[in-house]
Lab assay of single mutants.
Amino acid sequence: MKHYEVEILDAKTREKLCFLDKVEPHATIAEIKNLFTKTHPQWYPARQSLRLDPKGKSLKDEDVLQKLPVGTTATLYFRDLGAQISWVTVFLTEYAGPLFIYLLFYFRVPFIYGHKYDFTSSRHTVVHLACICHSFHYIKRLLETLFVHRFSHGTMPLRNIFKNCTYYWGFAAWMAYYINHPLYTPPTYGAQQVKLALAIFVICQLGNFSIHMALRDLRPAGSKTRKIPYPTKNPFTWLFLLVSCPNYTYEVGSWIGFAIMTQCLPVALFSLVGFTQMTIWAKGKHRSYLKEFRDYPPLRMPIIPFLL
């Protein structure tokens, strides 16, 4: 059985960083990364991007050496992705923050609204209902991160945790300040508006959870398998008939419901920014589905049925 020789060059300087002799033909890129780490321990596998061309796409960890368009002496180019952190850690951090930050404003801890309001309670029912909904949303997200989601990528750049936390924590503080303010004004149409908004919120939260469970069942634990998601017997998953990412559709719907319930401008802005970002993600995933699966359902749109 022939063996391969693998040289790894710096993608920027073309400097030879490592030479691997007698590499098995069936070795994966993940195994080559581990061998590279032995000579350069500062670059652990998650930091490494190996590619066939200095400006090309990163090879997948599961790619097999003998199936790549290389000879028995293969040249790979290395790029440092920077310090990495696990997706689970990032999600837990960015979701735990809003949960606790919101509660600080809800309980009106000292130095927020003035001494005479310390630890007082709002007289408006919608304020307490909003706290329950907000807390439920982020507790749900935390539990899904721990027990439901299966991540195709193990890590992301460390800098992302600061960007994500600034976004989630900042908006949580902004909306919580106004919703729990002693001078907060309840919704214009009173109980009817709150009940309608609560119904929207609850339905969308159930829908979002149902989609996450359906997506989880598509991917076996520990794998990166991708399949076309289809509706199940659960009615909340029937939205798969019309959109590629109904989890985002339901998520946006939840925040629209919360915005109607609280009639709070920061919540509306958070919903708008979230919708914009999720639309970008949904379009990317939709394109990926179309590219990977020739039999992908043609009627589906990325996030909004028939429109977007």
Results as ranks from 00 to 15, higher is better:
Leu242Ala: 02
Pro302Lys: 12
Pro45Glu: 01
Leu68Asn: 01
Glu5Trp: 00
Ser288Asn: 11
Gly170Thr: 07
Met278Val: 12
Arg123Ala: 11
Leu307Gly: 14
Pro110Ser: 09
His134Lys: 00
Pro235Leu: 07
Val127Asp: 05
Tyr44Phe: 05
Leu59Phe: 01
Leu308Ile: 05
Thr125Asn: 14
Lys227Trp: 15
Phe162Pro: 04
Glu62Ala: 09
His26Tyr: 09
Met301Val: 09
Gln84Gly: 06
Leu299Phe: 15
Phe258Ala: 14
Val194Thr: 01
Met301Lys: 11
Ser288Pro: 05
Tyr44Gln: 05
Phe100Ala: 12
Leu146Ala: 06
Ser210Trp: 02
Arg287Gly: 09
Cys165Thr: 15
Ser152Cys: 08
Phe258Met: 05
Thr232Leu: 15
Val6Thr: 02
Pro186Thr: 00
Ile303Gln: 02
Leu198Ile: 03
Ala268Tyr: 13
Thr28Arg: 02
Leu99Trp: 10
His149Gly: 01
Gln84Asn: 04
Ala282Ser: 06
Thr37Ala: 09
Phe162Ser: 10
Thr185Arg: 05
Gln277His: 05
Leu239Met: 00
Phe119Ala: 00
Ile211Met: 11
Gln192Lys: 03
Phe236Ser: 07
Leu35Asp: 14
Ile101Asn: 03
Val70Gly: 05
Leu146Tyr: 04
Leu17Ser: 13
Lys291Thr: 08
Cys264Val: 00
Trp169Arg: 03
Thr185Cys: 10
Ala282Phe: 11
Thr145Cys: 10
Tyr248Leu: 15
Pro235Lys: 08
Lys60Leu: 08
Leu272Phe: 13
Leu299Arg: 03
Lys33Thr: 08
Ser271Cys: 09
Thr185Gly: 01
Lys140Arg: 10
Thr120Gln: 13
Leu65Thr: 00
His26Arg: 11
Leu9Phe: 03
Leu103Trp: 08
Arg159Phe: 15
Leu81Gln: 13
Lys224Tyr: 14
Met261Arg: 01
Asp80Asn: 11
Ile200Gly: 15
Phe209Thr: 01
Asp10Met: 08
Phe270Glu: 14
Thr225Ile: 06
Leu35Gly: 15
Lys22Val: 13
Lys233Ser: 03
Ile260His: 13
Lys16Phe: 09
Asp53Glu: 08
Leu206Ile: 06
Glu5Ala: 11
Asp295Glu: 06
Thr39Pro: 08
Ser49Tyr: 03
Asn164Pro: 14
Tyr250Ile: 15
Thr73Glu: 13
Gly190Val: 09
Cys131His: 01
Tyr4Trp: 04
Arg287Pro: 05
Lys285Ser: 00
Phe107Lys: 02
Arg150Trp: 06
Cys18Asp: 09
Gly257His: 14
Gln48Gly: 00
Arg159Met: 00
Thr237Glu: 13
His3Glu: 09
His149Pro: 01
Tyr230Arg: 02
Leu265Val: 13
Ala130Ser: 09
Leu50Phe: 10
Phe171Tyr: 09
Thr125Ala: 07
Gln42Glu: 06
Lys195Ala: 14
Trp169Ala: 00
Ala173Leu: 08
Phe105Val: 08
Phe105Cys: 12
Asp217Glu: 05
Leu99Cys: 10
Ser223His: 15
Arg123Gly: 14
Thr237Val: 03
Asp61Ser: 03
Arg219Cys: 00
Gln48Met: 01
Gly284Ser: 07
Lys285Val: 14
Arg141Asp: 14
Glu292Cys: 11
Trp174Cys: 08
Lys33Asn: 05
Val126Ser: 14
Leu76Met: 02
Gly114Trp: 08
Phe105Trp: 00
Val252Trp: 15
Lys163Asn: 05
Phe119Thr: 10
Ser254Thr: 08
His124Cys: 04
Pro45Tyr: 02
Ala172Gln: 00
Ile303Trp: 02
Thr166Lys: 13
Lys57Arg: 12
Leu59Arg: 09
Ala173Phe: 05
Trp169Thr: 02
Ala173Ser: 10
Asp61Gln: 04
Val127Asn: 06
Arg287Asn: 14
Val88Thr: 15
Phe100Lys: 07
Ile32Ala: 04
Arg287Gln: 14
Lys60Arg: 11
Phe105Arg: 01
Pro45Val: 00
Gly207Cys: 02
Arg108Ala: 00
Pro302Phe: 10
Asn247Gly: 15
Ser122Ile: 10
Arg300Trp: 03
Trp238Gln: 03
Pro231Glu: 15
Lys116Val: 14
Phe293Tyr: 08
Tyr95Lys: 15
Pro246Tyr: 01
Phe240Ser: 08
Tyr178Cys: 12
Pro246Phe: 01
Trp281Phe: 13
Arg108Asn: 01
Trp174Arg: 05
Phe240Ile: 11
Ala30Asp: 02
Ile8Phe: 05
Glu94Asp: 03
Leu50Ile: 03
Gly82Trp: 10
His212Ile: 12
Glu5Ser: 13
Gly190Ala: 03
Lys22His: 02
His153Ala: 02
Glu24Ala: 00
His40Cys: 06
Leu241Val: 12
Ser49Ile: 01
Pro25Leu: 07
Leu142Asp: 11
Lys22Leu: 10
Phe19Cys: 04
His124Pro: 06
Ile8Tyr: 01
Trp43His: 01
Leu215Gln: 04
Cys131Gln: 13
Phe19Asn: 11
Cys133Asn: 00
Phe151Leu: 10
Lys291Met: 08
Tyr106His: 04
His40Gly: 02
Ile8Val: 11
Lys224Ser: 04
Glu5Gly: 09
Phe209Val: 10
Gln84Glu: 04
Pro110Asn: 15
Ile228Asn: 12
Asp10Pro: 13
Leu198Gln: 03
Ala191Phe: 12
Lys12Phe: 02
Phe111Met: 04
Pro69Ala: 08
Phe107Val: 07
Pro231Thr: 04
Lys33Ala: 12
Cys204Trp: 04
Cys264Asn: 09
Ile203Arg: 00
Glu31Gly: 10
Val88Glu: 10
Asp61Thr: 01
Ala197Lys: 15
Phe78Lys: 06
Lys140Glu: 03
Phe306Trp: 14
Lys38Tyr: 14
Leu215Met: 06
Val202Tyr: 06
Gln48Thr: 11
Ile200Lys: 15
Ala197Leu: 10
Met278Gly: 10
Gly114Leu: 15
Arg47Cys: 10
Gln205Glu: 15
Lys2Gln: 04
Lys291Pro: 04
Lys224Glu: 11
Ser122Arg: 08
Ile303Met: 10
Glu62Gly: 11
Phe107Glu: 05
Ala11Trp: 04
Glu15Pro: 15
Leu35Tyr: 09
Ala268Thr: 09
Thr276Ile: 08
Tyr184Arg: 15
Ser135Val: 02
Met301Ser: 03
Gln192Asn: 09
Leu103Gln: 11
Val194Arg: 14
Lys55Val: 14
Ala96Glu: 00
Pro297Gln: 00
Val6Glu: 14
Gln84His: 07
Ile132Asn: 03
Phe91Asp: 00
Gly257Glu: 15
Asn34Gly: 05
Phe107Met: 04
Ser254Phe: 06
Phe119Val: 09
Tyr102Met: 03
